[in-house]
Design a protein around this nucleic acid. Structure first.
Lengths: 237, 237
DNA sequence: ACGTAAATTTAGGCAAGCTTAAATTTGGGA
DNA sequence: TCCCAAATTTAAGCTTGCCTAAATTTACGT
């Protein structure tokens, strides 16, 4: 009665721009031309041109030389793409045996081709999951997305704390493969047992298996900045 | 050791042209410009232009004013698309609850976006099916396709014969819905109990359910020309 | 306050594919 | 055989989205 009265019908490029801008807005305040260009791997003038078209379409607002912000319509379209991407990643992982490091690329292509109906059928087959395999929240069909819990980057979790890995960027397959090779997945709990100063590595301890063997790992600062964690318990000294 | 050493990388349009030309060649001898134009719903000059580009790419051979034929490379690419399309239709039907009348459109978009790996994963999940939900043979990964059995159109099956429905075009959802509503699916066996002259309708009798109730249907000539059947037994008078 | 480096936009162009209108080729009937 | 209708191709132009080079604006350091 209220669903898709409006046909989506944006071009592949448009969808990519909206998604990239949405993701930049989640971090920054306003998305800048060069950041968009880098995210989409195009030259900055291409972004200027596309931004003009998108703002004429009412999908975003552009303050020349300052940056860009999604309108309500733009955000709605972007969240639709995020939902598609994350449902696809979850489906491919759960139902077709993909690893969490290889789904991103496949979803990146499919998200432009699936129908709303297929997305909903996949979501149903999965039992309407709330998170994708990397821990990112899946927007609802109505474009609502969970407020990110107050997660800390692993590089910021104080030594001595116990924390749970909650989210990893899906962008870098090598990173994901390496993280998985350490036994780290979304939901895994570990203790931060040390950290070197000057952006040095963080040491963590995992209790793995039923035998409770302990595995210690040293994680470089760069990598630790890509792991979002929920602090569980354990007070600092 | 021999698989996909060559990256496919054809445009969506190119893939559509190759598929359409392949399908026309399966019927006609050589595909003509106007037939391609009609199949793809574009104007004939668009076909002329695209044919020039495709033959420069070595995907087909063009005899001006005469028609077009796929080269070996063109046929290989076309069969790859046919495999994708038919695996997708089968997957959507078997695993995601699509009806046979609604899968074509979805597959038509997805076939350009899925990776070879995803196609193979779907095929594996399905147990490497040989036919899609409409009875069309699925080419192998190596581009081999089953020779069509000597099927007769229902409009040509002699009265008195018992036959099995083997294949229906996937193009027209309304037709498929109607055919299904008669209880006709691929594999259903029936007897041809009559036919009116001058391209008149054909009457068939189905034994349905375990109670062996008989259902008779009258099928217009146009529709009967879309149903490919294997004659099983029963001699003509 | 000013000058320069970095970011951004404008200018000019290209390729893919589509369109319509006009020119050409083909083929069948009188 | 000739002529016309249908099919096809050529011509010219549009849109999207990309590019590089040049012009502009911003912002920062001194």
């Amino acid at each position: 009665m209220s669903a898709d009265r409006k046909s989506p019908g944006y071009s592949r490029s448009t969808e990519d721009y909206l998604k990239a801008i949405y993701e930049l807005e989640s971090e920054d305040r306003a998305a800048q031309t060069s950041a968009i260009a880098e995210a989409l791997d195009v030259a900055p003038p291409s972004v200027s041109g596309m931004v003009k078209r998108l703002s004429e379409s009412g999908l975003l607002e552009h303050v020349p030389y300052r940056g860009v912000q999604l309108t309500r319509a733009g955000r709605r379209a972007a969240l639709r793409m995020m939902r598609r991407h994350r449902i696809l990643e979850t489906y491919l992982t759960s139902k077709l045996g993909y690893d969490w490091d290889s789904v991103h690329e496949e979803a990146e292509r499919l998200e432009h081709a699936v129908s709303d109906e297929l997305v909903e059928r996949m979501a149903m087959a999965l039992g309407y999951p709330q998170y994708d395999p990397h821990g990112a929240p899946i927007p609802t069909k109505d474009g609502e997305i969970e407020e990110p819990a107050d997660l800390l980057l692993l590089s910021e979790v104080p030594v001595g704390q116990v924390a749970e890995l909650r989210m990893v960027s899906d962008r870098d397959p090598d990173l994901l493969r390496y993280v998985a090779s350490l036994g780290l997945r979304v939901g895994v709990v570990f203790e931060v047992i040390g950290r070197q100063p000057f952006r040095g590595p963080t040491a963590i301890r995992l209790a793995v298996g039923h035998g409770r063997e302990q595995h210690d790992h040293v994680i470089g600062h760069e990598l630790a900045e890509h792991l979002s964690c929920l602090v569980l318990e354990g007070d600092v000294v």
